[in-house]
């Protein structure tokens, strides 16, 4: 088990360095740099000064090596070009926790809604509950969140005046509801679908029939025998969405004014803020890898047949 974890961590390091390299190359390959003449007077000298300050005047390979070394050696992701008074480490430290909290809440919400819908749909196969549940699920998958978020804001905040229109004041503020709902919708939908289909598979198995034959209460059959065995694929899906949801969504965060890390990721691309771009991508890759590792380890907990050597 420990050996397995060590190997995974080693692989993670390789993945992160490769990701860093790829994104670095991509960042420098797209046209336009962080400091360009815009719609206001910027002198040639001033441009040169700022490029020199951030070592953008050096050959790209040297920038790559210097920056990579700083990351590996000191965990220093460098200064942000655009938020000039903050380093990338500052930015990740300030904003990742927000996305993380919001993401965890959304994930709880989507598990709490998605799994029961899936179970109900499976146990009442082909009933109106099943159809209704799956229709909800497909809507959740089909409506993009850049439509869902403004929709929720106009509906819940502006028309009904039930909730504030967005912002962030920690998890216990009503401001969290709209972004959390918007984020929770797609994973809830996916969880409902996967739970249903794996439950359908499991419910036909012999041991479930045996349990029923023993005269066990239907509820217990479902929860203790069926759901437990249906959990593995569901966990995989939950893990995938968890990684995505805790790293923030650009659309939800921008539209609902949440100071999370997701929007930094997209804006850093459009402003060519290379260090922020690299920092956020590394963070995202790291979180995805860690969540995957946790999910894999959880398999062993849920399913005694799985061992990691």
């Amino acid at each position: 088990m420990l050996g397995y974890v060590i190997r995974r961590v080693f692989r993670l390091a390789v993945v992160l360095i490769t990701v860093y390299t790829l994104v670095f190359v991509a960042a420098h390959a797209i046209p336009g740099g962080p400091f360009e003449e815009g719609d206001m007077p910027i002198t040639k000298e001033a441009l040169e000064n700022i490029r020199k300050r951030y070592r953008l005047d050096q050959p790209v390979w040297r920038q790559y090596l210097t920056n990579l070394w700083a990351v590996v050696r000191h965990g220093d992701l460098g200064p942000s070009y655009i938020s000039a008074h903050r380093t990338v480490n500052d930015i990740l430290g300030d904003h990742f926790p927000v996305s993380l909290q919001l993401g965890l809440l959304s994930m709880l919400l989507s598990v709490a809604v998605g799994v029961p819908i899936g179970v109900l749909s499976a146990t009442r196969h082909n009933s109106w509950i099943d159809h209704g549940g799956m229709f909800f699920a497909l809507i959740g998958i089909s409506v993009p969140n850049f439509v869902m978020t403004p929709l929720l804001i106009v509906l819940l905040a502006v028309w009904l005046r039930w909730l504030p229109s967005g912002g962030w004041d920690g998890l216990l503020s009503a401001k969290v509801v709209i972004p959390a709902l918007a984020l929770a919708f797609p994973p809830a939908a996916a969880l409902a679908r996967y739970t249903r289909s794996t439950m359908l598979g499991v419910l036909g198995m012999d041991y479930v029939r045996t349990a029923r034959a023993k005269g066990l209460m239907e509820f217990l059959v479902i929860v203790r025998h069926a759901l437990r065995n249906a959990l593995i694929p569901v966990m995989t899906v939950a893990g995938l969405y968890l990684a995505r949801v805790v790293t923030g969504s650009f659309f939800v965060e921008t539209i609902a004014a949440v100071p999370g890390i997701g929007r930094y990721f997209i804006t850093s691309i459009s402003t060519r803020d290379y260090p922020v771009m690299l920092g956020t991508t590394l963070l995202l890759a790291f979180v995805v890898a860690v969540v995957n590792l946790i999910v894999d380890l959880l398999y062993a907990v849920v399913d005694p047949r799985i061992h990691y050597a």
């Binding site: 993945v15 390959a29 997209i266």
Partner: peptide, 15 residues
């Protein structure tokens, strides 16, 4: 493929 999957697809698409 795993490494590429670790990079968000929106970044890919934009780049």
């Amino acid at each position: 493929v795993d490494v590429l999957l670790a990079i968000p697809d929106l970044l890919f698409a934009i780049v």
